[in-house]
Simulated assay, not measured.
Amino acid sequence: MGEKFLTHYQVLGLARTATERDVKIAYRKAAKIAHPDRGGDPALFRQITESYETLVDPAKRNAYDKSYGAAGRSTPPAPTGSAHAQAREGYRGSSYGSSARAGSTGFSGFNTHRAPEHSSTAGDPAVYFPPYEGPAQGEVPIMPRPTAAQPVHGAPRKRGLFGASSRLAREARTAQLIMQQVLPGIPAARLINGLTAPFNSGYVDHVLVSGYRIAIIGSMLVPNGAFRWDGSTLVHGSKAVAPPQLLPATRQFQDLFPECNVTAWVCVHSNTGNLFEPVIDYARGTDPDGSNAVNVANAARFTREVKHFLASGPSPNVVDLHVLDRLLGGMY
């Protein structure tokens, strides 16, 4: 039934906005069904109990949300190699989403379904999964529809003592670029700003998701001139400039969201404000076309390539509420 891919919220049939009282009610109803003394499965009962113990404790629940629901979940390892994008897309057909809803009418945490496959384009109106239409009586959606329909969530946040103003300016420039150049053409795309990195104390500037593709995005500002990208550093004359280290977070997000293709992008801004600068020359095999784990490009090429990356994925007009809900839980 795909239980190993369910979050603690989905195990108990709750939305992330559930109150402590909601958690206790859902646990009691689930325990009655799954308790070994009533003929239930001991393993399932342990999973329900673990979910309850995490969500009923405010500190544990906050840490769990910031881990994107990683604790207690078992996911297949992300494939590696030069064909990583094509391979990861294959996980889409073997993973599960849950139609668990929050409410006080009963335990519904194991009503699992796959997102529907249908012919669609990125320019089509957004389709929500699970759908908002026709919920069972008394059930509450995973998140309010206005929240799901909101194209931008969160904002760049001040952190650290040094260089905060320049970092915030870079992030704001990238966010504005995405809002102006990417979101209007892809109604299902959602931009989430200011996320904690999984499993450590780091941060991720932006995450852009549409359908079953996720782009992890960082920013950098460089001086005027021509650069060369060799796959690990930007070379400017005799100087090497290291981009943000996005590969660890990309791999972690891929493990957390095996149903998605997760790829990283670094948007390189020039201090001239010209989207076509800086000019970047690419070594063989490092073109930012989405086939690499980390792609580096100036603003103009970044918007072109990231739009193609999102639009060419399966069901690009789907807003998967399970994916979006977990990403929103990771905002700091």
Rank of each mutant, 00 (worst) to 15 (best):
L161K: 13
L161Y: 12
F162L: 14
G163S: 07
G163F: 08
G163K: 08
G163I: 09
G163C: 07
S165I: 13
S165E: 15
S165K: 14
S165Y: 09
S165H: 11
R167D: 09
L168A: 11
A169G: 03
R170M: 15
E171L: 06
E171M: 07
E171N: 04
E171K: 08
E171D: 10
A172M: 13
A172N: 13
A172S: 14
A172C: 08
R173W: 09
T174L: 08
A175V: 12
A175N: 12
A175E: 14
A175L: 10
A175T: 11
Q176L: 13
L177W: 05
I178T: 03
I178F: 05
M179N: 10
Q180C: 01
Q180I: 02
L183N: 03
G185H: 12
G185W: 04
G185A: 14
I186F: 02
I186M: 02
P187C: 01
P187I: 00
P187S: 04
A189H: 04
R190I: 02
R190Q: 02
R190V: 06
L191M: 07
L191A: 06
N193T: 11
N193P: 00
G194H: 09
T196H: 12
T196E: 10
A197K: 10
A197W: 02
A197P: 00
P198Q: 00
P198A: 03
P198N: 05
F199N: 12
F199V: 00
N200T: 10
S201Y: 13
Y203P: 00
D205T: 05
H206S: 06
H206E: 07
V207P: 01
V209K: 04
S210L: 03
S210K: 00
G211Y: 02
G211E: 01
Y212K: 02
Y212G: 01
R213H: 06
R213A: 03
R213N: 06
I214F: 01
A215C: 09
A215V: 05
I216T: 08
I217A: 06
I217C: 06
I217L: 06
G218K: 06
L221I: 10
L221G: 10
P223A: 09
N224F: 13
F227G: 02
F227A: 03
R228S: 13
W229A: 04
W229F: 12
W229Q: 08
D230K: 07
D230F: 08
G231E: 10
S232T: 15
T233I: 13
V235T: 15
H236G: 11
H236M: 11
G237E: 07
G237Q: 10
S238T: 15
S238R: 15
S238G: 15
K239I: 15
A240R: 15
A240L: 09
A240M: 11
A240P: 03
P243L: 06
P243I: 05
P243M: 08
P244Q: 07
Q245N: 14
L246Y: 06
L246D: 06
L247K: 14
L247E: 15
L247V: 13
A249L: 03
T250Q: 14
R251W: 15
R251S: 11
R251G: 15
R251Y: 10
F253K: 02
F253E: 00
F253S: 04
Q254M: 08
Q254G: 12
D255Y: 05
L256K: 01
L256C: 03
L256I: 13
